[in-house]
């Protein structure tokens, strides 16, 4: 049950998932209160992507319960689930933009197809332009995803995820396969969205520095840059926690300071990666 009167946006209770006999998540329990962020670290095939897909109901758990925005989606019918999903934005690993649609049509897709959103037709264009302006891709409306670079596709996909103004955003490896500068741009967008819209955020990543940025920086709307968030003597890192996954199990959950204090070789491996 939610604790301290704070609403939990995502809650897993003893969730296990398997595919064809191979177990992907094992007895996973955690919750994310409103307005907080979780950085999910883990080696390849440790179940990070499956975790995100289970959270939004794309993958069904074999056992346990999943609550999304206060609703039990564990056994919810696919058609009913669309309403809950309309309040979640998701960035997929390879962007997953629709090849046959232009960037404008891609970003407009959730506005036009989510029944629960009911965006008036005359508002669609304006909101699409706003979302593309947010990710600084104003000039790409009529272009197709195949004409954009990897970083631009990732940004267009972020625009598609945030265009509906969802209270929860799930990012699957937003910086994977990008050069350090583009990766920083993408993380800056993630932080900008968190700070401007106060969204709850789940990020799957294998880069510890992405988590450090989330935990220690805030978006400064005056100059559009990321600035250290410790000026007032407190850090937002209490609202940003790290989850470490290993072979489908949650092996660590805690703040940056707690993570730095852990001596377990598997967990500290991610820390070293970030330092190097």
């Amino acid at each position: 049950m939610p604790t301290d009167g704070v609403k939990s946006v995502v809650r897993f209770e003893h969730v296990s998932v398997s595919f064809g006999g191979t177990s992907a998540l094992k007895d996973l329990s955690f919750e994310v209160p409103e307005g907080e962020a979780r950085i999910i670290l883990g080696a390849a095939s440790s179940g990070k992507t499956v975790l995100l897909k289970t959270a939004i109901g794309l993958v069904r758990p074999d056992s346990g319960s999943v609550y999304l925005l206060g609703k039990d989606i564990t056994r919810m019918a696919e058609r009913e689930m669309f309403e809950v999903r309309s309040q979640v934005g998701m960035l997929f690993q390879e962007s997953a933009l629709f090849d046959s649609l232009t960037i404008e049509e891609n970003v407009a897709y959730p506005l036009l197809n989510h029944k629960a959103i009911r965006c008036p037709a005359e508002d669609v264009e304006r909101r699409v332009k706003e979302a593309l302006h947010f990710v600084e891709l104003d000039q790409t409306l009529a272009r197709f995803p195949s004409e954009l670079s990897g970083g631009m596709r990732r940004r267009a996909a972020i625009a598609r995820a945030v265009v509906t103004g969802p209270p929860l955003l799930l990012y699957d490896s937003p910086t994977a396969g990008l050069d350090p500068i583009t990766a920083h741009t993408i993380m800056a967008l993630v932080i900008k969205e968190r700070d401007l819209s106060n969204t709850t955020t789940l990020i799957v990543t294998h880069r510890y520095q992405d988590g450090l940025l989330m935990a220690n920086f805030r978006y400064n709307p005056d100059n559009g840059q990321l600035v250290p968030a410790r000026e007032n003597g407190h850090r937002p890192q209490l609202r940003t926690k790290f989850i470490v996954m290993r072979e489908g199990r949650l092996v660590f959950e805690g703040t940056e300071l707690e993570l730095e204090a852990v001596n377990d070789p598997y967990i500290s491996k991610f820390r070293k990666q970030g330092g190097g």
Binding site: L58, F82, R85, S86, V88, M90, F92, A96, F98, P110
Partner: peptide
């Protein structure tokens, strides 16, 4: 390329 999943996620 996860476009099928994206389709489900987008309603």
């Amino acid at each position: 390329t996860e476009q099928i999943d994206a389709m489900r996620a987008l309603g």
